[in-house]
């Protein structure tokens, strides 16, 4: 759905898939494996403003909690309620049904500060 090869990645393991000024965001396959067994996700509400690099969602596994940092800034225009009801979707399909929310980008140039897939792959090896 949001092919990882066409996503851009933050050092903190979130991805952004940009299309016409809107970015869908989620966590990388590497991150879902590291966190493992996700049992709870708290998402921002539609209409909320998020800021690049600032925490805006919480991911909880059986063992620990992790913050989700916005990979780009802007207004949240849609959230994926399916992962709130079934957090395992994030483990099963982090670039598919396990997406987090969509941001109407206020600073599209921020995308340039994120890594391409190949570059990101090198950082997690």
């Amino acid at each position: 759905m949001f092919d990882e090869k066409n996503c851009k990645f933050a050092k903190s393991h979130e991805w952004a898939f940009a299309e016409g000024g809107v970015a869908a965001v989620g966590i990388s396959d590497y991150a879902q494996k590291e966190i493992s067994d996700i049992v709870f996700v708290e998402l921002p509400k539609a209409g909320a403003q998020v800021v690049q690099g600032k925490p805006c969602a919480v991911i909880e596994s059986v063992k620990a909690a992790a913050d989700f940092y916005a990979p780009v800034s802007g207004e949240v225009i849609a959230v994926n309620d399916a992962i709130v009801d079934n957090p395992a979707l994030v483990n099963q399909a982090p670039h598919g049904d396990g997406w987090f929310f969509k941001i109407k980008m206020s600073k599209p140039a921020e995308l340039e500060t994120l890594m391409e897939f190949g570059e990101y792959q090198k950082t997690i090896q």
């Binding site: 493992s36 067994d37 049992v39 596994s61 059986v62 063992k63 395992a88």
Partner: peptide, 8 residues
């Protein structure tokens, strides 16, 4: 070991 396949 804290886990193998996963805690769940």
């Amino acid at each position: 070991p804290v886990q193998f396949a996963g805690i769940l």
